[in-house]
Amino acid sequence: MKVVWEGVMPAVTTKFTTEDTLDLDLFLKNIEAQLKAGVSGIILGGTLGEASTLEDGEKEELVRATVAHVKESVPVIINIAEQSTKGAILAAENAQQFGADGLMMLPPMRYKATAHETVTYFSEVARSTDLPIMIYNNPVDYGIEVTLDMFDTLLKFRNIQAVKESTRDITNITRLRNSFGERLKILCGVDTLAFESMVAGADGWVAGLVCAFPEETVAIYKLAKAGQFKEALAIYRWFMPLLELDINPQLVQNIKLAEVATGLGSEHVRAPRLPLQGEERQRVLRIIETALANRPVLSQLTYS
């Protein structure tokens, strides 16, 4: 189905059993909660999805199960984070074969490519596939920034359509919009900058804490887009301590702990990750418990 790069797109977690196998029942329970909340797409195999530890067969199983479950109600996007151009092209081919509707792409992993190498990497993948692509621009965590000049070159490929904007610089949204207008859709990729990004004109939000709190995430987006900033900001302020769990090296463990609290997941992670322990676990639990005790009532919300 066609990908419309807007709205809330959860970067979903991958659910595991105690035997370290995929827990598809729990995974699809979470997907259903996302759909009921009104998300605009599902993104598989990102950092939150623990993609670096997934086997190819597991990625196929997740894509096929998600595509079958959503029944074309929303597009299914899979992340590509590969070490080689050859590997990225193969991943794109596999994604299309498995039934994915689009790709989210990081620059090459492990090697800090030059601007020319990065543009060539994205270009070769774009040339190899018909699937629409959202480039994940996260120089803070991955060390490579996709600059305006680089986008200017890349946008000759019609299937490069969107950017997951994670530079942490809100003004970059304005620069992108001034440079490329509506040709490049902009989705916020940092939970703690989501409201500000919507006000600045972002088209959507690739979200993390949505995995545990889908309704609140979608409400913030819808209210902000409707110009109801006061209402959106009230929920956002409540949400902020939780959103800060996403900008942390243990974001996977943090968000999975939040999923447990809302009945949408388990704590099982794949080694070398391990569940939170000690004082850090207690700190995160306190944040979650405080948020749940003060959870906003959304039933009275209307969107003008």
Rank of each mutant, 00 (worst) to 15 (best):
V3T: 03
W5Q: 00
G7Q: 09
V8T: 07
M9C: 02
M9N: 05
P10L: 03
T17D: 14
T18I: 07
T18S: 15
D20I: 08
L22Y: 07
L24F: 02
L24D: 07
F27S: 03
F27P: 04
K29W: 04
I31K: 05
Q34V: 07
L35H: 01
K36D: 12
G38V: 02
V39D: 04
I42E: 02
G46S: 09
G46V: 00
G49H: 08
G49W: 00
G49Q: 01
T53E: 10
T53Y: 10
L54S: 05
D56P: 06
E58F: 11
R64P: 08
A65G: 01
A65M: 04
K71P: 00
I77C: 06
N79K: 10
I80A: 03
A81Q: 02
T85G: 13
T85W: 09
K86S: 14
L90I: 12
A91V: 07
N94K: 13
G102M: 00
P107R: 05
Y111H: 15
A113W: 06
A113Q: 08
T114E: 10
H116Y: 11
F122S: 00
F122P: 03
S128W: 01
S128H: 10
T129Q: 12
P132S: 05
Y142A: 10
Y142W: 15
G143T: 13
T147R: 01
D149H: 15
D152V: 00
A162K: 01
E165Y: 07
S166T: 14
I173R: 04
R175A: 14
L176R: 02
G181S: 07
E182A: 11
I186S: 04
V190I: 15
V190L: 11
D191M: 03
F195Q: 04
E196S: 15
M198R: 02
A202G: 10
A202C: 10
W205E: 05
G208P: 08
L209G: 01
F213V: 04
P214I: 03
A219S: 13
A219F: 10
K222V: 00
Q228T: 08
K230L: 11
L233D: 14
Y236E: 12
W238T: 04
F239E: 03
L242Q: 08
L245A: 07
D246I: 09
N248S: 11
P249E: 11
L251A: 12
E259W: 00
P272E: 10
L274C: 10
P275F: 04
L276T: 02
G278E: 09
E279Y: 07
E280I: 03
R286K: 15
N294C: 09
P296T: 03
P296Y: 06
